[in-house]
Write a protein that binds this DNA or RNA. Structure first.
Lengths: 348, 348
DNA sequence: TTGAAAGCGCTAACAC
DNA sequence: GTGTTAGCGCTTTCAA
C-alpha cells in the first residue's frame, strides 16, 4: 500500500474567505451563520468562496466570542450495556432537530471517573448536562450546582436532584415485580444480579424487591452476584449453580434481562417447566427478549423515552425557558408478564 | 418535589483565581497546567484558591490561545449495533492513558449525515479523526484531506485510505467463510442479511462469499434481507420463512451473529439437527454467542483491537511522530467453527 | 521564578 | 446592507 502524507497546511480562517470573496470578515461571518440582513449577491459570493476554499469555521473562536456552545454533555456509566446506547438514541432523536449536539462521556460506574469526566466536559462550557443517576461525589455535585447551566439527572428518581430529573423509581420497580411474583403464588425465590456496589439503580431495585417480599412474610431464599463476562453465559451458569444448591426454588428474579435470558435458555434446555415449575423474570424489557423461545417476564425501563424527555428539557432551557416543576418527571415502568410468570395464583 | 433553581452566576476565570490568591494570572495558569517552574509556595497558594473557588478552566479560551485541542473525533454509523460500542471501548482504553479524549459522532449509515457530523467535529479542530469505513462522499474526503490532522479509517481495508487505516478485509472474510462451508460439504446455501445498501462492509462480505462459492461452482440458493426491529427475532422469522420456501437448504449464512443466533434458536426449537441436517454461521464473534445452547460458527471482527490500534496511531501522531507505513494495518479475522459447522467433509 | 503585552479567530455592538 | 472596533479567557513570548 502506498502512503500519502496528510495535508498539514494551516487551517483556513474567515479572513481567507473574506479576501477570496472581497467581502469584509464581518459580513462573511454573517453569511456563514445566516444572521442579519445580507444582500443575495454578497451571500452568493461568500458561499461560493467558502465552498471553493473548503472553509471549515473555527467553533472554538466562535464559542469564545459569542459565549455560546451548542454542546450537551451526556455522562453515562457504560456503553457495554445496551441500555445506555438506547438512552443516547432518545437524546439524539430530539437534539437532531435543534442546534445542540450531544457529547458522550463514560464513567465505568466510578465516582472518581465521573468527577474527571464532568470536570473535563464542563471546561468546554456546554449548554447543559445530562447525567445518569442521582448519586455523585460532593465535588461533582458542587461542580454541577455552580456550572450555571441546566443539569438533568436521568434514569432514577429515588432521591433529590440538583436541578431537573427524568427517570423511573427503581425501588418501586423492584416492589412491583415482587408483588406480581407473590400474587402468582411463588414462594421460594432466588435472586441473581451484578456484583456492582456502585450500580445504585440495581441496588434500589433489589431493596424494593426484598422489602415487598418481607411485607408478605417472604425473603430471598438464595442469591448470587456476578461481574464481567458474557451476561447471557453468566445467567446460564449462575442459574445452574443456584438450582443445584437450592433445588426447591420456584422463582428466579434476575437484575437484568441478559442474565435472565441465559437462565431461561438453561431452564428450557434442561426441560424445566417454565413458568409452572419455575417462574423467571428480568428487568429492562430489552428488544432481545422478543427473539427468545419464550418471552421472559420483565419490566420496561423507558430508557428511550427518558433520553427524549431529558433532551427536551435541555433544549427548552437553551431557548431561554425557565426551570419549571415539570422538569422533574417520574415515568412508570410497565410490567410485562411474558411467558415466564404465571398469570393466576397457583392452587397447591 | 421542591425546585431549586440552578446557579446562574458567571463562570469563574483565571483572573478570579489570580485575585483570590494574589498571584498573577500567568503564574496561576502555569500552576494549573503544571508547566514551567513555580515555587512550591506559590503553587500551593494557587491550588488552594482554585479549589476553594471551584474553578473550572475554560478550555475554549485555552484551545484558542494554544492552538491545541485534546479531542479525537470518532465517527461511527450506529450505537445500536454492539460492534461499535466495542470499538469505542478499545479506543477509550488507549486514550485513557493519554491527554486525548474521544468525542463520538453517529451517522446512521448516511453519507450526508456523515458529512454533517464530520464538518461539525472538524470545526472544533480535534487532534485527529477515527472514522468507520473507507467510503465517503467527495466533500467528506476533501474535508479530511485538508484538515491537516491524522485520519484513521477503521474496520475495513478493502480500499484506499486517506491517511491511516486499521481493519479487516471483509471480502476476504466472506470468502473464507464460504470456503469453510464448502469444505465441510454443504451445497445448498441460503443467505440472510441486512437490507442496507450503505453498509459497505456487509456488502463486501457478501461479495466475497458469493465469489468463493462461484469458484466452487456453487451459488446462493436463496436469500433474504431485513431492516429494523429485533435482530434476534428477525433471524428467527427469516429462517422460518426461508426454510419453508426452500426446504432443501443445508446451510444458512447470516451477515451478523444476532440474526444467526435467532436462526439457531429457531432450528433447535424445531428439532432440526444442527450441524448435520443444516449448518449455520454468522459474523462478528459476539460475546453473546457464548451463552447460547450451541455455539454458532462465526468469525471474529477484531473490533476491540481495531479501536486500540487506531487510537494508538492518533496518540503517536499527537506526540509528533510522522506518518509511517505501519499506520496501515490489516488484521486477520479468526474463523470459529463452533458447534454449527461440521468439521469434516460429510460423506453422502 | 514571575509578570506584562500581544494575540489566537471569531462575534457583539455599534457606526456608517 | 456593510464595515469597524473591541474583546471573549486563555497561552505564547519575551522581559525582568
Amino acid at each position: 500500500m502506498s502512503q500519502s502524507s496528510p495535508a498539514t497546511k494551516r487551517p483556513l480562517t474567515l479572513r481567507d474567505v473574506s479576501e477570496a470573496s472581497g467581502v469584509s470578515e464581518m459580513t462573511v461571518s454573517r453569511v456563514l451563520r445566516n444572521r442579519g440582513d445580507v444582500s443575495a449577491e454578497t451571500r452568493v459570493k461568500v458561499q461560493e468562496a467558502a465552498k471553493r476554499l473548503g472553509y471549515v469555521p473555527n467553533k472554538i473562536a466562535g464559542a469564545l466570542a459569542s459565549q455560546r456552545v451548542n454542546l450537551v454533555a451526556v455522562i453515562i456509566p457504560s456503553l457495554s450495556n445496551m441500555v445506555f446506547p438506547e438512552v443516547l438514541t432518545g437524546i439524539s432523536d430530539v437534539l437532531d432537530d435543534t442546534p445542540l449536539q450531544p457529547v458522550v462521556g463514560v464513567t465505568n460506574y466510578l465516582p472518581e471517573k465521573e468527577e474527571e469526566v464532568l470536570f473535563e466536559m464542563l471546561s468546554w462550557r456546554p449548554s447543559g448536562v445530562i447525567i445518569a443517576g442521582l448519586e455523585h461525589s460532593d465535588a461533582s455535585r458542587a461542580m454541577m450546582e455552580n456550572a450555571g447551566i441546566p443539569i438533568v439527572e436521568i434514569m432514577d428518581v429515588d432521591g433529590e436532584p440538583i436541578d431537573a430529573m427524568v427517570g423511573i423509581s427503581h425501588r418501586r420497580a423492584g416492589r412491583k415485580m415482587a408483588q406480581a411474583i407473590i400474587k402468582a403464588g411463588y414462594k421460594r425465590i432466588g435472586f441473581m444480579g451484578t456484583k456492582m456496589p456502585l450500580d445504585h439503580r440495581a441496588r434500589k431495585r433489589f431493596e424494593g424487591f426484598t422489602e415487598a417480599l418481607a411485607k408478605a412474610g417472604l425473603e430471598v431464599a438464595d442469591q448470587e452476584f456476578y461481574s464481567g463476562g458474557s451476561a447471557l453465559l453468566k445467567g446460564r451458569e449462575m442459574t445452574e449453580a443456584m438450582l443445584e444448591r437450592t433445588p426447591d426454588l420456584d422463582f428466579l428474579y434476575y437484575s437484568n434481562d441478559m442474565i435472565g435470558a441465559g437462565g431461561l435458555l438453561y431452564c428450557l434446555e434442561k426441560g424445566i417447566k417454565v413458568p409452572k415449575h419455575i417462574g423467571l423474570a428480568g428487568f429492562n424489557g430489552v428488544e432481545l427478549l422478543d427473539g427468545l423461545p419464550r418471552k421472559l417476564a420483565s419490566m420496561g425501563s423507558e430508557r428511550r423515552e427518558i433520553g427524549k424527555l431529558a433532551a427536551q428539557i435541555i433544549a427548552r432551557r437553551a431557548q431561554g425557558e425557565d426551570p419549571s416543576p415539570e422538569d422533574r418527571v417520574e415515568l412508570t415502568p410497565k410490567l410485562k408478564l411474558g411467558d415466564t410468570l404465571k398469570r393466576k395464583k397457583r392452587r397447591d
